[in-house]
C-alpha cells in the first residue's frame, strides 16, 4: 500500500502536478485577458502632443561647404543610458526599495531563490535528465545548500514579521500561515533530506508531496501572484506598470 503510494507520488502525481501548474497558469492568464479589455485611448483626453523634433541643422563651419557631423563624445553617447538610469533611480525612489529596504531586499532574494534553488538543483536535474534525456546546468550541492539556508532565513523573516509587526499582524489570517507553510515545506524537507536528517523515507515523501501540492496550489491561491504580479501591471497606469496600463476591466 505504502509502496504503491510512493510510486504514485513519484510517478503520475508529478506529471499531474506539473500539468495543473502549467495548465493553471495558462488558464489564469487566458482568463485575465478575457475579463479585461484594451483601454479606449479616448479615456485619456486632451494630452497635448509634443512638438515634432526639429531636425538639428548641421552647423556650417568656415571654409567647409558641409560640416562633418560632429562626432559624439563619450558622455553624449552615454546620455540615453544615463537618462534611463536616472529614471530607474527615480522610479526606485518611489518604490518599496526606499520605503521598505529590508522587506524589499528579502523579498527579492526569497523570490529569486524560490525559483533558482529547485530549478538548478543537481538532484532535480538528474531526475529531469532521466525523464527528458537532457538537463539544465546544475549548481553544486554546496551552492544550493547555501541558497536553501538563505531562502529559509528569508522565510523565517516573513514569519516573524507576520507575528511581531503590528500592522502585518492586523491583517494576518490563518491562510497566510498556510501559504507560507506550503512554500517553505519543500525547502525544509529538501534541506533535511540532503543532510539525511530524520527518517529519510518520510522526509522524502513529505518533500515530494508538499512540492506537488505547492505546484497545484500556485495558480489557484494567493500564490497566484506569481503570474498576477505581471498581469496586474498591464492594468496599472503608474510608475511601476508594464505597457503603461493600457488594459482595463
Amino acid at each position: 500500500m505504502m509502496a504503491q503510494f510512493v510510486l504514485f507520488i513519484k510517478g503520475p502525481m508529478v506529471w499531474i502536478a506539473f500539468g495543473v501548474f502549467f495548465g493553471g497558469l495558462v488558464v489564469q492568464a487566458w482568463r485575465f485577458i478575457s475579463v479585461t479589455r484594451k483601454k479606449d485611448p479616448d479615456y485619456l483626453p486632451g494630452a497635448p502632443k509634443k512638438k515634432k523634433n526639429k531636425k538639428k541643422k548641421t552647423k556650417k563651419t568656415l571654409g567647409k561647404a558641409v560640416a562633418k557631423p560632429k562626432r559624439k563624445g563619450i558622455m553624449e553617447r552615454l546620455q540615453p543610458l544615463i537618462r534611463f538610469a536616472d529614471k530607474s533611480y527615480d522610479n526606485l525612489e518611489n518604490s518599496m526599495f526606499f520605503t521598505h529596504p529590508v522587506v524589499a531586499v528579502v523579498s527579492v532574494i526569497f523570490h529569486v531563490f524560490l525559483f533558482v534553488t529547485p530549478i538548478f538543483l543537481l538532484a532535480h536535474n538528474e531526475l529531469f535528465r532521466k525523464a527528458f534525456g537532457f538537463s539544465l546546468p546544475g549548481l553544486s550541492d554546496r551552492t544550493t545548500d547555501m541558497l536553501t539556508i538563505i531562502f529559509l532565513m528569508c522565510g523565517a523573516f516573513f514569519l516573524f514579521r507576520r507575528i511581531f509587526t503590528k500592522r502585518v499582524r492586523a491583517i494576518t489570517t490563518l491562510y497566510d500561515y498556510l501559504v507560507l507553510l506550503v512554500t517553505l515545506t519543500p525547502f525544509i524537507t529538501g534541506f533535511l533530506a540532503f543532510r539525511q536528517w530524520g527518517d529519510y523515507q518520510t522526509v522524502m515523501i513529505v518533500h515530494i508531496v508538499s512540492g506537488e501540492l505547492m505546484l497545484i496550489f500556485i495558480p489557484f491561491s494567493k500564490l497566484g501572484h506569481m503570474i498576477y504580479f505581471f498581469l496586474y501591471r498591464l492594468l496599472i497606469g503608474s510608475e511601476y506598470s508594464f505597457g503603461q496600463g493600457k488594459r482595463a476591466w
Binding site: H100, V168, Y228
Partner: peptide, 25 residues
C-alpha cells in the same frame, strides 16, 4: 482580494496611516 498577500507594504504609501501614528486601522 485573493492576491493580496497581507504583506503590509502598502502602509507607508498612505498619508493617513503615517499621520495617525501608524495605526494599523
Amino acid at each position: 482580494l485573493s492576491h493580496c498577500m497581507h504583506c503590509g507594504v502598502c502602509a507607508e504609501s498612505c498619508f493617513l496611516y503615517m499621520k495617525n501614528d501608524k495605526d494599523p486601522q
